[in-house]
Amino acid sequence: MIFNKSFVKKKKVRVKEKSNAEKPGWKKKMVSLWIQEIRGVYLWLCMAFAARVLIRFLYDLAAYRDNNTMPEYFWHYTAGSSREMTGIKLELLKISSIVSSWALSLMPSKVLTLQAPGFIFANPILLLWIRDKTQMIPNIPTRASDYVLGRIRLWEFLSLLPVHVLVTFLLSMSLRRVLANDMIEIALGTIQYAEGGNPWIVDFFSEMLITAAYTVALQVLPVLFQLNRVPRWCVVWLFFPIFNFSVDSKGMGSAFCPNILLTFGLMGYGAPEMRIMSSMLGGMIGGKIMQTYFPDDKPVSADLAVF
């Protein structure tokens, strides 16, 4: 009887992984991994939502120079709540508007039109800082690339997905209860993509390929900067073309965060399932690219690859 050697080999690997999972310490390892992931995701979300509010405030403040008006929330939180600002207060507001314009000019151009969600939710400076604190990057496409690279196993990766979604959903619902109504729309406003303007296959591959490029850049460029003794924070400038890349017919950039899109869907805003799937696949493709051209020091077993 002739046996398929590749089938026997894969079967042995599955049996070996199963036996490893049944070791006494695997539960402790999983709990430790979940705690690490929860800490990272929670810290990332708090910083990202705060950054979203700050950027929106800078956007509205910069717009004051052109239309001489501020949104309702500004007057609600301003001492005195008076719209008739005169003297030094008015001058300070005008100066702040100019400074805000300068600050926004240092960001991706689509931040000026609120079409760069990736700059907020997938900012490399924020994610790398969290990695230094928690030893992980709280980004699902990046975790998908970690699986392809063999850094985590399949069952570990699958167990981390509910953690990302659940923590994001619970924190978002908590913020809806404690934030004022005018702040909810700013911090938790949905990311709207124009569906139907382009053929779905165009949007699908656009999202997938730019996510793959983002994943590779996030894990490779900081290492290259470090080897060449360049400050790591400078890497964010190289991400501007990625954040400005359009993934729909109206020019919206990618968020690079499927859990954010899914959470907004669970909150009733509608979840773009196609973009969630393409973002996951993009992370795996990015992992395959790194496995081929930028492999880890430790050899990666071919049985852990998905392609």
Results as ranks from 00 to 15, higher is better:
V230I: 07
V31S: 14
L266F: 03
T263F: 02
S101H: 14
L114E: 11
L128C: 15
P138K: 03
E37L: 04
I242A: 03
V163I: 04
I98H: 10
L188N: 09
I242W: 01
K16E: 11
M280K: 14
S96H: 04
V111K: 12
R177L: 09
L93K: 00
E91L: 12
Y193A: 02
M136P: 08
L112H: 07
G87A: 03
D66G: 13
G283E: 08
L171M: 14
F245H: 08
V202N: 14
W233Y: 12
N20Q: 12
Q135W: 08
A51R: 06
S101K: 15
G40S: 01
I88D: 08
N123L: 12
K298S: 07
W34L: 07
P71N: 06
M274F: 05
N123C: 13
S159F: 02
V223E: 12
Q219H: 14
L126Q: 08
S206K: 02
F204A: 01
F240T: 04
M85F: 06
I260Q: 04
G283Q: 05
G118H: 02
T190Y: 13
S32T: 05
C46S: 06
F225E: 09
W237Y: 10
P162G: 05
D248T: 06
T142L: 12
V220A: 06
R176I: 04
F169L: 09
D66I: 06
N68D: 14
F3C: 12
E22A: 11
K298L: 14
V8P: 15
Y147P: 10
V8S: 15
M183N: 12
F3G: 09
L170V: 02
K23E: 00
K10Q: 12
Y293L: 11
S172W: 01
N198L: 06
S174K: 04
L160G: 03
K89H: 07
S96V: 00
F240W: 08
G286H: 04
W75M: 10
M107E: 03
V216I: 05
D182W: 14
T190H: 15
L171I: 02
T215Y: 02
W237V: 08
G270L: 03
Y42L: 14
Y73G: 06
V13W: 00
A187E: 06
I55Y: 05
R153D: 11
S19D: 07
L43T: 01
N198V: 00
P71H: 02
A255M: 07
L227V: 05
R275I: 03
I120A: 02
L114M: 13
D132W: 03
S97E: 08
R14F: 10
M70Q: 10
L93P: 09
F256L: 06
L304M: 06
A305N: 12
F49D: 11
M85Y: 03
M136K: 07
V230C: 15
V53A: 08
R65V: 00
Q36I: 00
I125Q: 07
T134K: 05
M136C: 11
R153A: 07
R39H: 13
N67H: 13
K18W: 15
K29V: 00
L158W: 07
